[in-house]
């Protein structure tokens, strides 16, 4: 009680200083801790966007479960997509610790006030896209998530650790699909090249705008919500992908790619940001479809949720009557 009274008399500025000290000392912030409102809002935005991306991300791959070209691939793809539902769920529950309900988050998604990764606005047209998505899209996501295992908010960091552990198979199964295709018949190899060409650049854009353009970057770094900048993570991904493309024997989609001796990194061609923003702003092939799909599943399921609630009420009532 006395402590509470002392705390309550602390000024907002003092509280924020203590908060920043914790962060600087690499201590995790936990749900009941004092935190600046902007930190909370920033996390809600980023974590719910991350959760929505997992959930919307089920659709482009779900699109191929019924067409997978072998029973083994069918099982692998299904379990991967199912994992994504699980990851969405881990992230929703971690975000709920910040005082927002899943229902509110879903509503924000469905009304367009919350975003999901724009990569899922691209259509999946061939089986090769299952390879490219697992390898490149999950690969880019993992780069980001590995870094987020050290994020300052405890529940977020813990769900990232769990997700990274499970996702390591996602990228590998994707790359394995690419290996089979690239080393298969000429038609399969062409399929692999086509998928690589379509998904390479959008994958790079998953890291977000350049640091100089990123609205949330600086403060997120100070609060250690983000641990590495967009450009650093993107560079890491570009560098590690080069030898993977070479091994496949496919052509690299970036014609301007050259090794920079001095930086010991690759210099790469400029990304087409106009296209990126165009897709984000509604001109992707699947923007409307993804949200409509989500809304329809939600509405189709309304009677199920109502029925379970009604059933439970009846059961509880019966228990009270029996007890009386």
């Amino acid at each position: 009680m006395v402590n509470n009274m002392i705390k309550n008399t602390l000024s907002e500025i003092e509280l924020e200083r203590l908060f920043q000290e914790k962060i600087d000392a690499e201590q995790k912030i936990e749900p009941k801790d004092w935190m600046p409102d902007a930190y909370r809002q920033n996390l809600i935005r980023q974590m719910s966007q991350h959760a929505h991306s997992e959930v919307i991300g089920m659709q482009p791959e779900g699109n191929w479960i019924t067409r997978a070209p072998s029973l083994r691939r069918k099982a692998v793809l299904l379990s991967k997509v199912q994992d994504e539902a699980g990851h969405g769920l881990y992230l929703y529950s971690a975000t709920e610790t910040l005082g927002i309900s899943r229902a509110q988050m879903i509503e924000a998604l469905q009304t367009g006030t919350a975003k999901y990764a724009s990569i899922f606005n691209y259509p999946t047209q061939t089986w090769g896209d299952m390879g490219a998505i697992g390898w490149l899209v999950d690969g880019a996501a993992i780069c980001n998530q590995v870094s987020l295992q050290r994020t300052s908010y405890g529940p977020y960091a813990r769900s990232m650790i769990r997700i990274c552990k499970e996702e390591s198979f996602h990228q590998r199964q994707g790359y394995q699909i690419m290996i089979e295709l690239a080393h298969g018949t000429p038609a399969q190899k062409a399929m692999a090249q086509d998928s690589l060409n379509r998904f390479y650049w959008p994958s790079l854009m998953m890291f977000g705008p350049h640091d100089s353009e990123s609205a949330h970057s600086a403060r997120s770094m100070k609060w250690k919500i983000k641990r590495e900048t967009n450009d650093d993570l993107r560079q890491k991904f570009i560098d590690q992908t080069v030898s993977q493309i070479t091994f496949l024997g496919l052509e690299h989609p970036d014609k301007d790619l050259v090794w920079n001796e001095k930086r010991e990194q690759y210099d790469s061609g400029e990304l087409d940001w106009d296209e990126f923003y165009s897709v984000i702003n509604g001109n992707g092939h699947c923007n409307r479809q993804r949200i409509q799909h989500h809304v329809k599943a939600h509405e189709d399921g309304a009677w199920v949720r109502e029925a379970t609630a009604a059933y439970n009420r009846k059961k509880e009532l019966k228990q009270t009557v029996d007890a009386a």
């Binding site: 709920e96 309900s101 899943r102 229902a103 879903i106 989500h294 939600h298 399921g301 949720r305 609630a309």
Partner: peptide, 9 residues
Amino acid sequence: MTTEKLELF
């Protein structure tokens, strides 16, 4: 897929 009718565990 909202869960307004469900309980949190």
